[in-house]
Design a protein around this nucleic acid. Structure first.
Length: 298
DNA sequence: GCCCAGGCCTTTC
DNA sequence: GAAAGGCATGGG
């Protein structure tokens, strides 16, 4: 009986997958300033894997397939998610101008980095997912961060299908709040387990809608009131989920760039961040990503 | 065994 | 307000 029920569930899933395949939509644009690898592997997002000609990428409860072909970049998603991913990949922004501006600061290393990674786009990510993801990111490395987040989705997310393959959504705050710290620890989160629990409980009660429509300064101040969120994580959330491009997150890699390639002499992260933000203004977020990505590759 | 990774919290001065 | 320890975990 149990087997039969499972069989039926699988059959229904497969049927649904087939139906979804009929209602897929593809967005296409020139790839010169939209390269999937530069955009996805530059460290701003953690839920993706390589697939055929490109990547399968997940955001919140949605999925897309992004790939390059004939100098064009294609985003394939369910019809109802097309607008979401259009905004997600920041397709309304002119990145020719961004790269040109980055080069105009006349900083050799930055000019080199920006032109090497000119296909990089800043994503407009899901707010809750970004908040929890970057809490996990502290004092951690990217492969481990990916693994921990994947485990959390698998444990607490909703099972869905995309292009015939199962995946798990990023859990709701309620689902995250229902778990104990020991679950997060068992998934490799280490000492961050309590941060996840506390923030999940807070967000499940309050929501985070009150963070919308704040200035960059106000938003960062609010984000700093969450356990496990310091200046760097707050800058990442503000940049990757709230389009606050004047944010300049300073992590160990940016510290290295600052010291080794920009000739900086400060050692305090806050001072470094203030200086870089002051120098690059509203282009800080883009500059930061070009430098971070380029430094990690070289 | 060591050092490092998209740092932050608490304690102490 | 600044400085110093401590912190889980796995990769190199």
């Amino acid at each position: 009986m149990r087997n039969r029920k499972q069989y039926n569930t699988t059959a229904v899933d497969k049927l649904l997958a087939a139906v979804y395949n009929l209602i897929m939509k593809t967005i296409t644009c020139k790839s010169e300033y939209f390269n999937p690898k530069d955009t996805i592997e530059c460290g701003q997002v953690f839920r993706y894997y390589q697939h055929e000609k490109g990547y399968i990428l997940y955001s919140a409860d949605k999925a897309c397939y992004i790939y390059c072909e004939n100098e064009q970049t294609h985003i394939k998603a369910e019809d109802c998610d097309a607008d979401y991913f259009y905004n997600y990949f920041d397709l309304d922004r002119n990145y020719f101008d961004i790269v040109r501006h980055a080069s105009s600061f006349n900083v050799d290393y930055l000019t080199k980095a920006a032109n090497a990674a000119k296909g990089l786009r800043l994503l407009n990510q899901d707010k809750q997912e970004t908040l929890f993801s970057f809490i996990i990111s502290q004092n951690n490395n990217i492969p481990r961060i990916k693994k921990i987040i994947e485990g959390i989705c698998r444990a607490l997310g909703e099972r869905k299908f995309f292009m015939g393959k199962e995946y798990y959504t990023f859990p709701t705050a309620t689902a995250l709040a229902s778990a104990s710290a020991s679950l997060y620890k068992s998934l490799g989160a280490g000492y961050r387990d309590e941060f996840i629990c506390q923030v999940a409980q807070r967000v499940s009660k309050e929501g985070i809608a009150h963070l919308d429509n704040l200035s960059a300064q106000e938003l960062k101040k609010e984000l700093l009131t969450y356990k496990g969120v310091g200046p760097k994580v707050a800058d990442c959330v503000a940049l990757f989920a709230y389009k606050k491009t004047e944010s300049f997150p300073v992590d160990t890699w940016i510290k290295k760039v600052y010291k080794e390639d920009l000739g900086g002499t400060q050692t305090d992260r806050k001072k470094i961040a203030a200086h870089l933000q002051n120098t690059f203004g509203e282009y800080s977020g883009f500059v930061q990503q070009y430098l971070f990505y380029f430094k990690r590759q070289n």
